[in-house]
Amino acid sequence: MKRLRLLIVDDHEVVRLGLRLLLQNRPEFELVGEAESGAQALRLVERLRPDLVILDVRLPDQDGVEVCREITARFPETRVLILTAYPDEEFIVRAIEAGASGYVLKQAGSRELIEALEALARGEAILDPTITRKVLEQFRQRSRATREEAFKDLTPRERLILARIAEGKSNREIAKELFLTEKTVRNYVSIILDKLGVSNRVEAAAYALKHRIHDFLKEEDSAS
């Protein structure tokens, strides 16, 4: 399997050192560079063209979300994983809108981070389950009419699977919970992404949370 070429962007040397030590013995990853500012990150991305940038949203010279936006706009082949200590709802939504492929908290353990990187290497998108709950709270005031419009093109089964995606569950977990095969779930996910007009699971999760899919499903159950 091709090694995933990584660039770390964080203004804290200790964080960079910790990530370096975590990744150095992993044969599937190759650390190609480190940056401590947004400007330096953009220069290195242009020169090194990494597969993935691990990016802190709080940088000394620029807003990390805007750095993410510029990276994804100028170098669409490079994916961005937001790694931060701040589960701030505003930053989460802005980062997803800026094209981030994932959002993981620094409080996550080393195993969780490696699993997130491995998922990104497989072309999946990652959203920390803790974050999904916070984003959900931000959109509690959306109206029922808006929710109905948001999910009108999805079948009941597709809505259930979308809700599980919004909870941060993997295809395997969804398959086990809904008594489906992983292949069937993958097919459903592709259909859902197409119907919603989004490109990956993170965007689908953000869409679902924004339009309060869990409230929508509860309302459907109450009405039936």
Rank of each mutant, 00 (worst) to 15 (best):
Arg3Tyr: 12
Arg3Val: 14
Arg5His: 11
Leu7Gln: 00
Val9Tyr: 00
Val9Glu: 02
Asp10Gly: 03
Asp10Thr: 05
Asp11Arg: 06
Leu17Ser: 14
Asn25Met: 06
Arg26Gly: 07
Glu28Met: 10
Leu31Cys: 02
Gly33Phe: 09
Glu34Asn: 04
Ala35Cys: 04
Ser37Val: 08
Gly38Ile: 04
Ala39Gly: 12
Arg43Asp: 13
Val45Asn: 04
Val53Gln: 00
Ile54Phe: 10
Leu55Gly: 05
Asp56Gly: 07
Leu59Phe: 07
Leu59Tyr: 02
Asp61Ser: 07
Gln62Asp: 14
Gly64Arg: 00
Val65Ser: 01
Glu66Ser: 15
Glu66Met: 14
Val67Arg: 00
Ile71Gln: 01
Thr72Gly: 02
Thr72Leu: 06
Ala73Glu: 10
Arg74His: 10
Ile82Ser: 03
Tyr86Phe: 15
Tyr86Trp: 15
Pro87Ile: 03
Asp88Pro: 08
Glu89Val: 07
Glu90Gly: 05
Val93Arg: 12
Ile96Tyr: 06
Gly99Asn: 02
Tyr103Val: 07
Gln107Asn: 13
Arg111Ser: 09
Glu112Lys: 01
Glu112Trp: 02
Glu112Phe: 01
Leu113Tyr: 02
Leu113Trp: 05
Leu113His: 02
Ile114Gln: 02
Glu115His: 08
Ala116Gln: 00
Leu117Ile: 06
Glu118Leu: 10
Glu118Ala: 11
Ala119Glu: 14
Leu120Val: 03
Ala121Ile: 08
Arg122Asn: 12
Arg122Ala: 13
Glu124Ser: 11
Ala125Val: 09
Ile126Asn: 01
Leu127Ile: 05
Arg133Pro: 02
Glu137Cys: 10
Gln141Cys: 13
Arg142Phe: 11
Arg142Ile: 14
Ser143Ile: 10
Arg144Pro: 09
Ala145Ser: 10
Ala150Ile: 12
Lys152Ala: 15
Lys152Pro: 09
Pro156His: 11
Pro156Asp: 13
Pro156Asn: 12
Arg157Tyr: 04
Arg159Trp: 12
Ile161Val: 15
Leu162Ala: 05
Leu162Asn: 08
Ala163Met: 02
Ala166Phe: 03
Ala166Thr: 04
Glu167Asp: 14
Gly168Phe: 01
Asn171His: 11
Arg172Asp: 06
Glu173Arg: 10
Ile174Trp: 05
Ala175Glu: 02
Glu177Met: 08
Leu178Pro: 00
Phe179Ala: 11
Glu182Leu: 04
Lys183Glu: 10
Thr184Ile: 05
Thr184Val: 06
Arg186Leu: 06
Asn187Val: 07
Tyr188Ser: 13
Ile191Ser: 15
Ile192Gly: 09
Leu193Met: 06
Lys195Met: 07
Leu196Cys: 03
Gly197Glu: 03
Asn200Ala: 13
Val202Trp: 05
Ala205Asn: 05
Tyr207Lys: 03
Ala208Val: 09
Leu209Tyr: 08
Leu209Arg: 12
His211Tyr: 10
Arg212Pro: 03
His214Ser: 11
Asp215Asn: 10
Phe216Val: 08
Asp221Phe: 03
Ser224Thr: 09
